[in-house]
Write a protein that binds this DNA or RNA. Structure first.
Lengths: 339, 339
DNA sequence: TTGTACGCGTTATCAT
DNA sequence: ATGATAACGCGTACAA
């Protein structure tokens, strides 16, 4: 591999001039610049990223912290990661994966102290997340995808669950529905302080209450069978339900199956609206699911951009971005049928 | 951040001794080792990864090359990436994402020459993949997930499509089926030389022919609607079909829906077997899909392990690993009903 | 067993 | 506008 030294010799200049010709930090005569670039081309020179990082104290690497156990958002996750990686590359950064289980948060500390990453992106943030304190202490720039209970001073990009739930209700209520049940993620995720579960649940309760409608909500494990069971129980307890909001892909499919088995037609008898889900997953359903798609791509993009701004110090305000899910009306919601 | 120098001073030894105490390359007296570790703890010392890389000429970084446009294997992809990242970490390596479109293969060259990665993992390999030549020239260790047409001297881990298709047929034929159709990925993916499409197609044709059964195969775009259309066309052309092998998740769901709409019951009238698909996706189907699950986790693990061995030079033989998909019998396959 | 000193390939601070 | 040269933090021959 050719080094800067080789280039300098071939071009008849000093290494520093080569460096400056490359970075543009200091003016260089067009002629010498040309000679240098010619030499680079001839040698097939590419600057050594590691050496550059050591000298400049900047690696241009962003670490993505994600727990091994995924709480059901597998669909959106890939979309998010891809988007984050692409954005990073556009901005001249690399995205590095740090799959760290909930039980080994301590490892995070070590990784950070290795100073391999200029900044950290935190996925699957919980209301009270120990990783945040860690990052705070370590002085490493970081951005949350999701947010803690008190995220006042922190950069974050998250789904706007309040608006999402409100829009979901607007859609259903606009169709004449009043008895609306909510099927969320597992109780375990709630207890773990998993943001989506907590915030969507709260939003549902508040918005229903404000409208004077009864709050019927259930937690559900991430499986089709659990979805079936919840539907059975729900209609047993509340036979007058005409619409379902779900936030749990596996359960949604189970629910649809159970409704079919029970002879309830979707959407004639029951409307189903799946929120914070992946469009790719929704497209698998028959009839095709009306959804509110999680903005994985947007979150990845702005999370990375904000983090880079913070790293490079060109940022004034903290990022507090809340993106609602986008309503995509398909075949599982329709006007309520009067009996 | 504390450096090795700080540790050395505090422990009253030279930096080299600290280094040797850390790497164990040279013996160090227990006492001095203890003093050094005490100093490290006191200072919260962690070796600087970049400096270490520059000196040792080894970054402990593995790059994962994946095209932006995913040819439908989104389900398995996340599983694979997660597994790769976890395995890398277990082995003391980092996984870095390089999302590079098919149209910008040249970029790959630059990235490699930056010498940020010790080795490269190549995803979504095609029969004739330009990236392979690039990597070969650049002398960078690399392992393919998938394989080119002639992968004789290359390390690869891939799905064993031949065995997978044979097992699929054994299952269906064992149930009495003879008129079996195959619904594959898009024609575009075939033309692009996408490995799974090519190899599974060939395997289907060969195994059916060997058994004296008619070869009925279709390409299908990655969408539910395309799956529906193919089913309609298939039964129009071959009304006697009793079983379907699919390798296209979106199309599989569309096919199931169309079969239902046409009044064909699964599995009573038609058995459906989805191959090389993700169990998580399969679980969404109703009735639950019998599948042959893609070994994403295994491929990620052995791909990374093999690559690391090659990087560290402790490998003798080249990796030629072919893992068949595992049959998971659920509710969409059953004995053929005699009319 | 331990210390000294050089090298890794750049960036950045001095000069000139 | 350009050239020396000292960092950057660590690995590792070589010497002691």
């Amino acid at each position: 591999m050719a080094t800067m030294n080789d280039v300098a010799k071939l071009a008849g200049v000093s290494v520093s001039t080569v460096s400056y010709a490359l970075t543009g930090v200091r003016p260089v005569t067009p002629e010498t610049r040309a000679r240098i670039h010619a030499a680079m081309d001839e040698l097939g020179y590419q600057p050594n990223a590691i050496a550059r990082s050591l000298a400049s104290r900047r690696t241009h690497i962003i670490a993505l912290l994600f727990p091994g156990i995924e709480l059901g958002l597998s669909g959106t996750a890939l979309e998010f990661v891809t988007s984050a990686a692409e954005t990073a590359r556009e901005e001249g950064y690399h995205l590095m994966l740090w799959p760290i289980g909930d039980d080994e948060v301590g490892e995070t500390r070590n990784l950070i102290h290795q100073q391999l990453a200029d900044g950290v992106l935190v996925m699957e943030v919980r209301l009270d997340d120990p990783r945040v304190d860690l990052l705070r202490e370590s002085q490493t720039p970081f951005t949350l995808i999701g947010r803690t209970a008190d995220a006042a001073g922190l950069d974050y990009a998250d789904i706007d669950f309040d608006t999402t739930v409100r829009d979901a209700l607007d859609h259903l209520i606009g169709l004449g529905h009043e008895r609306i049940a909510f099927v969320s993620h597992s109780k375990a995720s709630l207890d773990a302080g998993y943001g989506p579960t907590v915030r969507a649940g709260e939003a549902f309760e508040r918005h229903m209450t404000e409208r004077g409608l009864p709050v019927v909500a259930r937690h559900c494990d991430e499986s089709a069978d659990a979805g079936r069971a919840v539907v059975s129980e729900l209609w047993h307890a509340h036979p007058d339900i005409t619409a379902l909001i779900t936030m749990n892909d596996a359960a949604t499919f189970g629910a649809m199956a159970q409704l079919a088995d029970d002879g309830r037609q979707v959407p004639r008898d029951v409307s189903v609206l799946s929120i914070a889900s992946s469009p790719r997953v929704a497209a698998l359903s028959h009839p095709r699911l009306t959804t509110m798609a999680a903005p994985g791509t947007e979150l990845g993009r702005s999370g990375v951009r904000s983090l880079i701004e913070r790293i490079e110090g060109s940022q004034s305000a903290t990022l507090h971005e809340l993106v609602p899910c986008r309503l995509d009306i398909q075949a599982t919601t329709s006007p309520r049928t009067k009996e």
